[in-house]
Every structure is written in C-alpha cells, then in structure tokens.
Amino acid sequence: MAFADISRRSFLAGAGSTVAASLAGMPLIHAGTAQGQVATGVLRRKIPGSDVSIPAIGLGSWITFNVGVDPVLLKNCTDVMAAFFAGGGEMIDSSPMYGSSQATIGHGLKTLGIHRDQVFATDKVWTSDENGGGDQIAETARRWGISKFDLLQVHNLRDWEDQLPVLQAKKAAGELGYVGVTTSHGRRHELLSVIMQREPLDFVQVTYNPLDREVENRILPIAQERGMAVIINRPFRGGHLTKALRGVPVPEFSSELGAQSWAQLILKYIVSHPAVTCAIPATTRVDHVRENLAAAMPGKGKKDAVLPTPDMRHAIAAAIGDAL
C-alpha cells in the first residue's frame, strides 16, 4: 500500500482504539492502549507497573531505515511505516547510532501525518560524553519531529553510569515515559544483570530468538522478578536466520499456530515467552511488515493470536536447529 493512499481518516479507522485510548485520558506521551480496552488485532502486552499496553510486534530501524537522502528509499521506508501503523503497530525503535534512521522515521511520521499519540516513540542515548546525553536526546527529538519520547534507553550500556541518571531525571520531570537499557548480540549479560538488579529500569532490550537463547537463563527471569518490560531485538539475526531458512518447508504443526512462514514461527516463539513484551523486527518490505504483525494477530476464525505452548516452543527451536 502506498502511503499516499492512507489518509488520516483511514489510518484512524485502522488504529481506532489506540487513538481512543489516548483520548480517554492516557498519560500524555504514552501511545499504548489502556488495559482492558479493545485494540487492533495485534496481541498487546502490558508494560509492567503500568496500565499501558503496547502491541507485541514493533518496528526496528537498524540498517533498514538508514537510507540517507535517497528519495526512492525514503518513500520505501514511509510505505513500510504506513503498513506498520495501518496493521496496528505502535512501537518504533531507533538510535543515534543508526545513521539517518531517526530522520527517516521523522520523515515518515510527517509524510503520513501520524499523530504523536499513535506512535510509541522509542530511541536511545549513545554517547561516551558524560554531559552529552541531553544534547543528543534533543537532536534525536528534532530528527523524529517530536518533543517527548515514550521510552529512551542507554544503547549497549554505553556510559550507562552517566546516562541513566539523565534519563531518570527526564522521567521524573515528566519529559519521558520510560527508561531502559539495551544490549544486542548476546553481549555483556553479566553487567546487564547487575544493572537490572540495581537500577529501577522500566525496560530492557536484548537479543532473543530460537537460536540465541542465553537470556532465558538469567535476564528474562530477572526482568519478570523486577517487573521490567522486555524488548527483543534481532529476532531474525539481522535477516540471516530467515535467509538461511528460505526454501525450507515450515513444520506441519505451524498450521496449528496459524503461522505461514518461518518468520511468523520465530516471532510467535519470541512473544510467547512470558517475560517478553514485544519484538522489533526491522524490514524494508511492506509485505514483511504485514507478515510480522500477522504473527501476533488472531488467525482465521480465532479470537486471539495463537501462541505456542512450551512443548511447541521446544519443537520450533528444534525444527530450526534441524533445518540449519
């Protein structure tokens, strides 16, 4: 669907309950829908310690949205965002480290006329300058074209001792919704677990998929115990996992889950972990963003999204292991 085809009215119709939630007295900068309200078809997960929920499938921007000033690629990314919002998505995640991705998101939001309350704006602070966090956040907001973020995280724990207080202060001042930290590629879990035990974090972001499961041992249990929301990055290992599985038939039990592709099986595997709040696959393709969202939507004739049982989760991981 071309973004030009999406009018504000049609978008609002698609994401109606989200807007309704914001109009119903949600905290100013929260895009999430109040618990109990009927949202779009995408499975929603509550942010621990709040009444806010967000769709279990978000949109990452690592590599995919770093397209510079190329008008063709900017339009392509805007199309992806249009499909994402039209399908009920809310959380978009970026970082100052991701080149022009923030500006691409800002371009898409402006072009599509997306209202601030319709997006759960998630970004990061990534600097080793102990006094540089504030300026970087201001620049990030300028690129997005917004004044406040729903969630800001310390990227890859970089200078976390200096940057976390900056974020906490912003949250205390009402300039920020939630505070978090991130890692990726399974790095620095020891330090992450220490920070999670010590700091009052709202979110953590880590890598998790059927092949990269180290977080199951310690990080995810701590998140559950401490009441932290968990964002999952690299669900497809940056696309390498789905690429490696291309041409391999999905297992027979996929139909029970309403999964039509390995990508959907992987996403179902991820969001079915009780500690996981949402996964943020990145893509340059409109059909893929729809496919990703569909993984957390009710199948035909179903009321809710069908997620794998523990046995099925084990079977998914085993099937992928066998296929590779």
Binding site: N66, G68, V72
Partner: peptide
Amino acid sequence: MTDWWDYHLIDFLLFSTRVYYR
C-alpha cells in the same frame, strides 16, 4: 563503562549494500 572493543566490525556497518550502491 562500555568499551569500543565490545563491538565487532559488522556493528559499525549500519547500512545495507542496496543503500550503499543507491
């Protein structure tokens, strides 16, 4: 304190081949 050697070379490549040639 996060250190630079915590990153791999691939982590610094934040654009795709398609974008590069575009």
